[in-house]
Design a protein around this nucleic acid. Structure first.
Lengths: 168, 168
DNA sequence: TCTTCTTTTCACTTTCTTTTGAAAGTTCAA
DNA sequence: TTGAACTTTCAAAAGAAAGTGAAAAGAAGA
């Protein structure tokens, strides 16, 4: 397979994978492109490679930067901004885990706490079933929270970081 | 908060959570509804509770059954089919992990293996960067695969199952 | 077999999301 | 201060995904 075809296939696969996980296709594609490029790209290069508009490029690059998995790079003497992606997929995974936790898990925990205070007679089986479900979910959410924290910390800490390299 | 309101809020939150993770909103809502109901519901009851059409109900219930997180229940003497959801969220989580692995991770691994065979001079930095990224991802994918396997097995096996109850 | 109730399918509609492109905004060298 | 280069915004268009409803298919009992 030629490099150009392989690149195209990778970008398109990464894009549809992202889509299945609730991440906008273009955003995932830009990320894929930046991951496999040895050097930073400018907005124009991204537009050209993926055939997308400037506005779209700008929006999605900005969002990737918010997620912490793409960085702005300034090349001395150049006015244009360049962009580059973290190449270590483990770091990418921990960043994504951290972000999704913050954006999704934390709000869920808040909602669950509110829902636990539902009124009603504990003998009513509907009330009981509801309370049980929420409690069950709450425990699960807290456990998941802890698990993500250790995952994120493992990557951050030097000690576990070294340990993890054994797996990689 | 009244039970009816709490139910409605839970269903809607679970629905939008699902949407963020690439699961169709209605499917997640039906799942939420079945999780908090003490007894199985018929298609008509689901339609009425969620205000959705019969076709939509049918499609999404079938998909939930495919995922293995909702079961068809036959009530003796009744001709209608009833549906119920697994109430233990850990089991739900392992089922979902198993399914997503099968549907997504496994195809990714296949694709990555193909992409590793890209032609080209290893001294070309574009070729090198591409190969490195793919290899990196491949290791990550295999590691993830193993991690999911242990998660799924931990729930299945009685021994770890008992152990896990300590966490829950 | 025929009737009736239930489930499934599918072409069509609606809704939601993404992308575009033009315009406005910003920055900086001259 | 100007204007060229570059970036950001946003309303409208296109596209994708989900939902509807009616008809077809299937199942159970008479």
């Amino acid at each position: 397979m030629k490099l150009a075809d392989a690149k195209a296939q990778f970008i398109q696969s990464w894009g549809s994978l992202g889509a299945q996980w609730g991440i906008n296709r273009t955003m995932a594609q830009i990320h894929a492109l930046l991951m496999i490029m040895p050097d930073p790209l400018s907005a124009d290069e991204i537009m050209a490679e993926l055939n997308i508009s400037r506005g779209n490029t700008n929006m999605n690059v900005r969002e990737l930067i918010n997620w912490g998995i793409v960085d702005r790079v300034l090349i001395p003497g150049e006015r244009k901004e360049y962009f580059t992606a973290e190449k270590d997929i483990w770091k990418v995974a921990t960043e994504i885990a951290r972000e999704r936790k913050r954006r999704e898990l934390e709000p869920i925990i808040k909602t669950l706490n509110q829902l636990q205070e539902v009124e009603g007679d504990a003998k009513d089986k509907h009330v009981k079933a509801f309370r049980d479900s929420i409690q069950n979910l709450n425990k699960f959410a807290h456990q998941t929270d802890k698990a993500i924290n250790s995952f994120v910390k493992a990557e951050e800490s030097w000690f576990y970081g070294t340990l993890m390299k054994l797996f990689k």
